[in-house]
């Protein structure tokens, strides 16, 4: 009999965080408001870590049933092909700028991450796990596995990057006076993937959402092609 603890804990925490975010039960003071501005994955993940630490839950016990949730990540990656199909007209319309921007963004992300991590004298394994951090999580995890990194660390980096980008992305773009929806959407999708896209949904700009979802998929695929080359070069 499989221990269902991990499965239930994961779904419960995520759905709970999502429901809390929508509900009006708790009085919204400033502190609570800013906690709820964080994406549910961040809240659920942190609570999970605290619970595991305080109740001494072993990771293997947890993962015994939680691995069935991770399994769904594979079809979810493939499902990302759907937004590309749905918005293919936009891709054709802005093709020149979009494709150069995708390659540009993917290359900047990989090179910069390497330079800064090297500058801080990180271990090789950690650098490799951080390389795909601007890519949407399922793709990033695949790249990290393929290159010999630590998928867990990659997943965490991806979420943290997404949270940071989602919270400050629109502000930064406002400061540098980028105004077109195409540019904002692409920047958010390329830098902070799904979580940034979700932020564009909250802002209520459909064109940004479309550009961001296309950007996050294609930057992911481009990075998957570029990252092995990059690692081969630095070796």
């Amino acid at each position: 009999m499989i221990n269902p603890l991990g499965f239930l804990l994961t779904i419960g925490l995520y759905k709970g965080a999502e429901a809390l975010k929508k509900s009006q039960i708790i009085k919204r003071t400033f502190v609570i408001k800013s906690i709820f501005a964080l994406p549910p994955i961040f809240i659920a993940g942190t609570v999970l870590l605290i619970l595991m630490k305080s109740f001494n839950i072993d990771f293997n016990t947890y993962n015994e049933s939680a691995k069935y949730i991770t399994f769904l990540l594979t079809p979810a990656t493939i499902a990302l092909g759907y937004p590309v199909f749905k918005y293919k007209d936009l891709l054709v319309k802005h093709k020149r700028v979009i494709y150069s921007a995708f390659i540009f963004a993917a290359m900047t992300a990989i090179c910069l991450t390497y330079i800064i991590a090297k500058f801080c004298h990180s271990e090789y394994k950690i650098i490799i796990s951080m390389l795909p951090k601007s890519v949407t999580a399922p793709i990033a995890v695949e790249i990290s596995k393929e290159l010999g990194g630590i998928p867990e660390l990659t997943a965490c980096m991806v979420v943290l990057t997404g949270v940071f980008g989602a919270m400050f992305g629109h502000k930064i773009l406002e400061i540098i006076r980028v105004k077109s929806d195409v540019a904002i959407g692409l920047a958010m999708g390329a830098a902070s993937h799904v979580i940034g896209t979700a932020r564009c949904v909250e802002k209520g700009r459909p064109k940004q959402v479309v550009m961001a979802s296309v950007a996050l998929v294609i930057v992911g695929v481009v990075s998957a092609v570029l990252a092995p080359f990059f690692v081969w070069i630095i070796k």
Binding site: G6, A44, G45, T70, A76
Partner: peptide
Amino acid sequence: LIKNMAMFLIPFWGGLIVY
């Protein structure tokens, strides 16, 4: 699947404890 993609990542957060 796309709407709930974030949920599939939570087990990875649990895995951080090992590292």
